[in-house]
Write a protein that binds this DNA or RNA. Structure first.
Lengths: 240, 240
DNA sequence: CGAAACTTTGAGTCGGATCAAAGTCTGTGG
DNA sequence: CCACAGACTTTGATCCGACTCAAAGTTTCG
């Protein structure tokens, strides 16, 4: 009864985000089930929980089931750069298995449900299961592309452009997993997180958000973002 | 006579840079030879030659034998972000095979000697040669780590810190391939290239370089860089 | 209801961009 | 071997986007 197993392991959470994520997307049922069985049961973590320590040589593979987490790196003097946000379906730590110790840390930005797979198990999968090896390659290539898109944004875009670009990116990623629709989605992190991702100060980010809102490019109510003017946003974020 | 083949294919160029590069490092002789046989004979390209077109769905794998090349991306309005420099031994385009069309373009920053491997051949190697598959995974993971190091630099560091960080990085990479020693190495590209890599304007980069030189952190004569004050540079570039 | 965390606004400063022009180097043809 | 053109580097003056410091609102949650 593999399908029963599948369901109990993610009891109460929609499967769609995971099933349409980079590592799982398009796999057949037995493969998905197998992958999930290699994971731990789902766990819950409060906001600000450390999921992966920087430099941990035995960091597990973490798959987010629900909520927002992020990978980041802290400089000697405390400045923090958020490298990427991981949303439901995303995995964190695939590269760590190959490069030795984790080059980054990861923590939750909101209450999160996740599952882990031990380093050993991932290694075994990589060695023995050829489609998993392929998947890992593709997932890594994708992650690099995303890192470089972020790099372009940082290097060439001003605050408004960065914000527009990232809002669109979140929307696309979430929509691809059924977590956004009709130009609306939920952002569950603070402006400090957002600022550390964009390489801006909170104050300046806040003003920039204000400007874009007053121009009716998007609106914000609670944690719900509505992209009011898609074409306008795309014009601003020329990376898109 | 595999070793003869190996030598003639790179006639006149030291093998060391390639042999100690991410994709080749630590392989045994037969494997290196095999990889080289899959490549074209070496080619020469003048400065400013396009090696890979953006969006090319059939971009080959390019291995730099001598000289400097770089990967970059251009925004709609002409701003250019250099994503990475490729130096002797580096390969460009591994990810393109997996993600479909190339997300970036590549061109030479100086006269370059290089070799190509067709998309088909790389695909075949990936499928049939398990150590090559492993290598590809590792190389990609490494590239992502490097992209994220660049991201941290852009997001959190000011001009001086970025310059110091990149000088150190070049030195480390070149030294690892026997192309730098006693704190000295050759930089064969213009300040415009450098600026587009760091996300600064040429003017500001130039002033920043001037400041670091007058503080005797490094010196520049012709295209030769000498790192005069390693500890000072490391202190500046807290990413190191 | 109160404290802590987060967002928003204000005033002043600074790093880096822009615009412009003067040097310097490099390669080419006479 | 020199003269010249084009590309590259360097310097000057000015401007603006983003940062800093500070404090007032607002939300969240115990």
């Amino acid at each position: 009864m593999e399908n029963t197993e599948l369901v109990t392991r993610v009891a109460g959470y929609s499967l769609q985000p995971i099933a349409s994520s980079p590592l799982f997307r398009g796999l057949d049922r037995p493969s998905i089930t197998m992958l999930q069985q290699q994971h731990s049961l789902t766990r819950r973590a409060e906001r600000d929980t450390q999921l992966i320590q920087a430099m941990d040589p035995a960091a597990p593979l973490v798959t987010i089931v629900r909520g927002w987490a992020f990978r980041y790196s802290v400089l000697a003097d405390g400045r923090r750069q958020i490298l990427s946000f991981a949303l439901p379906g995303d995995t964190i730590g695939l590269d760590t298995l190959l490069t030795g110790a984790s080059a980054y840390a990861a923590q939750t930005a909101a209450p999160v449900v996740y599952a882990e797979m031990s380093r050993d198990r991932v290694m075994r999968l990589l060695r023995d299961v050829s489609w998993f090896h392929d998947r890992a390659l593709q997932a890594l290539a994708l992650e690099r592309t995303e890192a470089e898109r972020a790099l372009i944004r940082m290097g060439q875009c001003n605050a408004e452009e960065r914000v527009a670009s990232v809002l669109l990116e979140f929307y696309d990623r979430l929509a691809g997993r059924g977590l956004a629709a009709s130009n609306q989605f939920m952002l569950d992190f603070t402006q400090q997180h957002f600022a550390d991702y964009l390489g801006l100060t909170v104050v300046h980010l806040n003003r920039t958000l204000g400007r874009l809102r007053s121009r009716r490019l998007f609106s914000l109510s609670g944690h719900t973002v509505t992209l009011l003017d898609m074409p306008g946003l795309k014009r601003l974020a020329l990376t898109h």
